[in-house]
């Protein structure tokens, strides 16, 4: 029976025999699956795009930060150059200022003395190695030199 069935492989016949007719449940499942795959794909592409954009933005900002830091350093340098004492002195002389030659101090009774700028800023560390090996070394003359001295003195008859 079945051996007598002739199967035509013409596209028209193949299409006719494919079971297109899906029940509604299967169709919904297929649609949901497709939607899920599309969503996942869309999410991946969106995220990848966002990451790429952010990454380039971070790179740009990092370069911008470097650039601003460099500009800041250049400005600090410029300020320091403008504040250089050799320049300040020239500018002061040009403006008619003169070096101070006659300083007079006045003492005000009861006014507390201002601390000197060179007062001890920090407590000194405890004294260590008050007599170290280096210092003590000179008190033990070289044995060989001592013997030579003794021989020299003996020869000299002392």
């Amino acid at each position: 029976m079945s051996s007598n069935v002739i199967v035509s492989l013409k596209p028209k016949n193949v299409i006719r025999h494919i079971p297109w007719q899906l029940n509604s449940r299967s169709a919904l499942g297929l649609v949901l699956l497709l939607a899920l795959v599309s969503l996942v794909g869309w999410l991946y592409v969106t995220q990848a795009s966002a990451v790429t954009t952010t990454s380039y933005r971070i790179d740009e900002m990092r370069m911008e930060l470097d650039h601003v830091n460099n500009q800041n350093a250049a400005l600090i340098m410029e300020i320091a150059q403008l504040e250089a004492l050799s320049r300040v002195e020239q500018r002061a002389l040009a403006l008619g200022f003169q070096p101070v030659n006659d300083i007079r101090y006045i003492s005000v009774d009861g006014y507390p003395a201002a601390p000197s700028s060179t007062d001890n800023a920090f407590p000194a560390a405890p004294i260590e190695n008050s007599v170290d090996a280096y210092v003590a070394d000179v008190e033990q003359p070289n044995w060989w030199l001592t013997q030579l001295d003794a021989v020299a003195e003996w020869i000299a008859g002392q």
């Binding site: 800023a121 560390a125 004294i127 008050s130 007599v131 170290d132």
Partner: peptide, 19 residues
């Protein structure tokens, strides 16, 4: 007299060598 880096701010103290 002072060393400042990302981690520390070290104040250098005077050192007595000997009396």
């Amino acid at each position: 007299e002072r060393i400042v880096d990302a981690e520390r701010d070290v104040q250098v103290k005077p050192t007595v060598v000997r009396q």
